[in-house]
């Protein structure tokens, strides 16, 4: 449809506003992480760095366990994403493509998980993890992340499964495929975009998780980026250069991941929503 020129101006203004609102903070932070310390705290801020240095990154990598945090985060997020998929895909298949007693009730109960503050379970969970020896382990973090990613993941897969015509499944039944074969050979290949978005969702959720990790992880060597990073905040006198370098560094993996598969994720998010 054609737009009037007034609408075009309005659209251009909104887009410019959104660009500033979303991108400018990132630009300021990333560009400033390469500035000399004096320029960072200068009273007259510069849009484009006048100086260039890698000293903040060097300091970050040498004076903190940042590489360890990064590695821990990658391990926890990747494993969490894989396990979330392993649990969510069969569950979603059963919820949206199979008949069994109690289906509706179970599905609604799962969605209820959104309706209470996650901080509620933090206290009893800590006690439980102490008994199970899961405190201060990456395994414990994976369990937490998977649990919190599951309800939304199942919900997200709904529209992907619902979008497949039932005849394709019936054709496979007529071809003599068992339910497991149908899931593996027919359904999963057809919902690859959905699987990608759920995987990314679980990864990002795990990558950004702070509260539970901060309580459940004790030793520095087990910390993930968010918690290790927040440790750096308080540990030193505020060294903005190093914090900005750390922030730029922590953004990097998600940006890389997102430039590869972001389109699918957003597609999956908008597909799964509200339907």
């Amino acid at each position: 449809m054609r737009r009037s020129w007034q609408m075009n101006i309005l659209l251009a203004l909104s887009l410019a506003f959104l660009c500033l609102l979303i991108l400018l903070p990132f630009w300021w932070v990333v560009s400033s992480s390469f500035k000399e310390p004096q320029e960072i705290i200068s009273r007259s801020p510069t849009m484009v760095p006048h100086s260039f240095t890698l000293q903040h990154f060097q300091k970050l990598l040498s004076s903190s366990a940042y590489p360890t945090y990064m590695l821990n985060s990658l391990i926890v997020s990747t494993i969490s994403a894989i396990i979330t998929l392993m649990l969510a895909v069969p569950a979603a298949y059963a919820f949206f493509r199979m008949h069994f007693p109690g289906r509706e009730v179970m599905y609604r109960t799962i969605l209820l998980a959104y309706a209470f503050p996650s901080i509620v379970v933090l206290i009893p969970l800590f006690g439980m993890f102490v008994k199970l020896g899961l405190v201060d382990t990456l395994t414990g973090l994976v369990i937490i992340n998977v649990t919190f990613a599951l309800p939304f993941s199942i919900w997200m897969l709904r529209s992907f499964f619902a979008g497949l015509p039932k005849e394709i499944e019936e054709a496979a039944v007529m071809d003599g495929a068992s339910t497991l074969v149908i899931l593996r050979r027919v359904m999963i290949p057809l919902i690859t975009p959905g699987i990608a978005s759920v995987g990314i969702f679980a990864f990002i959720l795990s990558w950004t998780e702070y509260v539970f990790t901060s309580v459940l992880i004790v030793s520095d060597a087990k910390r993930t980026v968010p918690v290790g990073f927040s440790g750096i905040i308080g540990q030193y006198q505020i060294d903005w250069g190093m914090l900005l370098a750390g922030a730029s560094f922590a953004v990097l993996p998600v940006i890389i991941l997102f430039s590869l598969v972001g389109r699918w994720f957003v597609g999956g998010l908008t597909e799964g929503a509200v339907k």
Partner: peptide, 30 residues
């Protein structure tokens, strides 16, 4: 699958991710 029956669906219900050959061979593979 045990009835010895084959069915042609209104929407054809071909497997979109498989080639024509794989579509036709899937039942034989099973």
């Amino acid at each position: 699958a045990e009835r010895g029956i084959a069915m042609v669906f209104q929407t054809y219900a071909l497997y979109p991710h498989m080639t024509v050959e794989e579509n036709m061979a899937f039942g034989l593979e099973m």
